[in-house]
Design a protein around this nucleic acid. Structure first.
Length: 161
DNA sequence: GCCAACGTTGGC
DNA sequence: GCCAACGTTGGC
């Protein structure tokens, strides 16, 4: 099966790349996804070992800041059941079972210089990236292998293909 | 099942 | 803070 690549957005005010790098094992669970399409990607298409770009949004200079790998495939997100969680979901609680899933991600490589949204926009071969499409705001997106390669080269990282 | 109202995202 | 675009909700 062809390798699949992903992009996951996060607001650094909520959870940043730097936060991930400081975790034991540079590992953290990626909880709180509350969009069905994003959930379905994680649940149905994510597999351990796949690589993802981590993207910082809602910040002065939005862009891709590093590469992580999926350290654990999708499993139920218990924050949906906790009334004190910002990710609490009444319908999950009512059913007594979380309808949302999370994965574990592990940092693989930091970009020395983040690949800014602007530089992505300026690259002629990246115009079809999901991230760059008008109105696109899904927090988990597929990245085509050729796009992955170009961005790794922009970041001076040699991709393992 | 339609669709208006509302909430959220996220660049600028 | 603005606002376009999109997703969700809920009355009917």
């Amino acid at each position: 099966m062809a390798a699949k690549y992903w992009l996951m957005k996060t607001e650094p005010e909520t959870f940043s790349w730097q936060d991930l790098m400081q975790r034991p094992g540079r590992l953290e669970s990626w909880d709180g996804v509350r969009n069905y399409q994003a959930r379905n990607f994680m649940r149905d298409e994510f597999a351990e070992g796949q690589e993802v770009f981590i993207y910082h949004s809602s910040t002065a200079e939005p862009g891709i800041v590093g590469v992580a790998r999926i350290a654990r495939a999708a499993y139920p997100d218990p924050t949906a059941l906790r009334p004190d969680s910002p990710y609490f979901d009444p319908k999950s609680a009512e059913a007594g079972k979380s309808r949302w899933v999370m994965v574990d991600v592990e940092a693989v490589a930091s970009f020395a210089t983040p690949i800014t949204l602007q530089s992505l926009r300026e690259h002629p071969k990246l115009q079809d990236m999901v991230l760059l499409q008008r109105g696109q705001r899904l927090s988990i997106q597929a990245v085509r292998p050729e796009e992955w390669k170009i961005i790794c080269e922009m970041a001076k990282i040699i991709p393992v293909v």
